[in-house]
Design a protein around this nucleic acid. Structure first.
Length: 579
RNA sequence: GCCCCUGUAGUUCAAUGGAUAGAACACGGGACUUCUAAGCCUGAUAUCUAAGUUCGAUUCUUAGCGGGGGCACCA
């Protein structure tokens, strides 16, 4: 077990014993607001209420009963008003913590593997023939980070991808592609071709809207015809073009995932599961779970779930998102039959839809766990992004602008660097920046995207974390005994101890991030770690020192670097050795 | 109309009901012949309103005001 968790449990148990019958949860053991108060703290409020005593009295009683001899690593216990504060022995803490980091093998602060749930986790949800935009970026950054964070808590996670490759948007795109481009595009590079296809969709969308406005019904009829052809007639030229162009998008998506360092264990396509959805709806109709209404098929979820009417099949007999999602759930559990739970990550707008879906499946007898994690939208200062209004901020534009911006900066700073190193480092900076801006804000907070702000690489940014790591790496190349065993910590400055103690709390950041399904907890922890590291770095020089002082400081930085690298890895932020 | 999210410093965001509400940007001041100044130190500035619960409320409840989203043929 992680040292941190063990210490907290030990304290909780000891306090429970000292208060006789009270159950004390380990999470009641907190961090005091000021380091000089101690390393752990417990507030006596609840116990005081139970005992009808003053919290200060209870705190004093508990402190008096606790003996440091029985508490691992603790060298001081004292009551401070309503709190009991605990202080750890620095030398012992350093030895045990560093030993844990050294043997953790990239799993510092983590719980044992496969001790949790088996989760199918669906995220990303791109649409073929359409643009990848910065809203998807938020999904990707959150999803990939959640996979790591949940795994750190012992859950078995199977990340899967669901791609929407059918529907009106596809038909519109094909309509315009055939009409204006004769069904061909000149690009051969997978990414460029995907992007060109998405551009066709934007044109198509505008042309379609213009036609609608001017009362021209021909495009609408043509789009319906194409939609029907690709759904019903596999031998039609439209179906052939659909499959060809779909592949352009899918190839492009593979490249996007690869450059973002995202992996899926399975891909589901809407077209593969949609027809099964219709079948499932018909079964539900037979069972009485669904019913006819106004020519369509619905499920009435107004009571007891209070989830309104759920539309399952349109009056023209065609399916919709809900239809597909019913079958998709079957497909997921067919691929991962041992899974206990399925979690889906989308923006908040779909929360109602998924609440309905899960309620419907439970009515249908499903016993697995279902979860939806919603995050707030990414908007521009003008409001919601819309491809029709042309207000989409494209993923590729942001990526390219960031790469450009950081390349320029790097060339100026390191004129001696070879082009390849500049390019590689610029990508690390760009992808780090993109992900970090999406991860630091908690997921229930809307992000108003500002390109200028996103391009600024100061303050609370991924670059600050990457820069901190690079400084550690450089420092360590100049001392040769960073990994040597040390028995004592020749502390000369409070910043050293503050940094050491912050490393101990890493396990708490992981546990919190997982419990809240919120990677921003980890992102902010790492930022704080770097702040403490930077402060220490300025005040406590390493190279001009020698003997145990140098050894200790180098070791502190080395271990900080390892924890930082692990945390960044979990957030999907690339690390580089020089910046 | 009903439901969900949200309101904290000039701006963008933090804060399991607990000790003096923290950061970043912007603004003001400062240190360095010294391991990367994309850094460090330092200053000023904030809980939408009104009731309630509590020893204690930015946090919970109710009402109001403001912002965003959702609620049957879109995904």
């Amino acid at each position: 077990m992680a040292l941190f968790l063990h210490l907290r449990e030990t304290l909780a148990d000891a306090i429970a014993a000292a208060t006789e019958h009270m159950a004390i949860a380990p999470t009641e053991i907190m961090r005091p607001p000021k380091p000089e108060m101690g390393d752990f703290a417990w507030g006596a409020f609840a116990v005081a209420k139970e005992r009808k005593q003053s919290p200060a009295q209870v705190a004093q009683d508990v402190a008096a009963q606790l003996s440091t001899a029985q508490l691992r690593l603790v060298e001081r216990v004292e009551a401070a008003g309503p709190y009991v504060n605990f202080t750890l022995n620095t030398d012992a803490l350093m030895r045990e913590l560093f030993a844990e980091i050294d043997r953790s093998n990239g799993r510092f602060g983590c719980l044992g593997a496969d001790t949790g749930e088996k989760i199918i986790f669906e995220y990303s949800g791109l649409n073929t023939h359409k643009e990848v935009h910065i809203g998807h970026l938020r999904n990707h950054a959150l999803g990939a980070a959640l996979v790591s964070i949940w795994r750190s808590q012992g859950h078995e996670v199977h990340p899967v991808n669901f791609t929407n490759d059918m529907g009106a948007h596809v038909a519109k795109c094909l309509w315009w592609l055939m009409k204006k481009y004769d069904g061909k595009l000149p690009e051969t590079d997978p990414v460029k071709r995907m992007e060109a296809l998405a551009d066709v969709y934007v044109e198509a969308s505008k042309a379609f809207a213009d036609a609608e406005e001017s009362g021209d019904t021909a495009p609408r009829q043509e789009v319906s015809r194409i939609l029907l052809a690709i759904e019903e007639d596999a031998a039609s030229p439209e179906a052939a073009l659909w499959k060809e162009t779909r592949q352009w998008s899918l190839d492009g998506f593979v490249a996007v995932y690869k450059e973002s360092d995202i992996e899926f264990e399975h891909w589901f396509l809407e077209s593969d599961v949609k027809m099964n959805g219709k079948k499932r709806v018909m079964e539900m109709l037979d069972k009485g779970i669904a019913q006819h209404s106004q020519g369509a098929i619905i499920a009435d979820l107004t009571t007891p779930e209070n989830l309104d009417i759920m539309l399952l099949l349109k009056s023209d007999g065609t399916g919709l998102y809900a239809t597909t999602d019913i079958a998709l759930m079957d497909a997921k559990f067919a691929v991962f039959p041992e899974a206990t739970k399925c979690v889906v990550l989308t923006d908040m707008r779909q929360a109602h839809h998924f609440a309905q879906l899960f309620a419907l499946l439970r009515r249908d007898g499903a016993t697995q766990g279902f979860g939806h994690i919603g995050y707030e939208l990414v908007t521009t200062p003008e409001g919601m992004m819309s491809s029709r209004k042309g207000t989409i901020v494209r993923y590729r534009d942001m990526r390219d602008a960031l790469i450009e911006r950081s390349s320029t900066e790097l060339r100026e700073r390191h004129p001696e660097w070879p082009a390849e190193q500049v390019a590689q480092t610029a990508r690390a900076v760009a992808f780090g920046a993109m992900k970090f801006t999406m991860l630091t804000v908690s997921s229930h907070q809307k992000i108003v995207f500002d390109m200028a702000a996103a391009l600024s690489l100061t303050g609370m940014s991924a670059l600050y974390l990457q820069y901190s790591y690079a400084r550690i790496r450089t420092l360590l190349t100049r001392v040769n005994n960073a990994k040597g065993e040390i028995a004592t910590t020749p502390l000369t400055h409070p910043t050293e101890r503050a940094l050491l103690l912050h490393l101990l709390w890493f396990a708490d950041a992981l546990a919190m991030a997982s419990a809240e399904n919120d990677p921003s907890v980890l992102a902010r922890y790492l930022y704080e770690l770097c702040q403490k590291m930077s402060t220490c770095y300025e005040v406590c020089r390493v190279i001009e020192e020698d003997g145990t002082v140098q050894q200790w400081r180098a070791s502190l930085h080395a271990h900080t670097g390892e924890v930082l690298a692990q945390g960044l890895q979990m957030l999907g932020i690339p690390v580089v050795n020089a910046l």
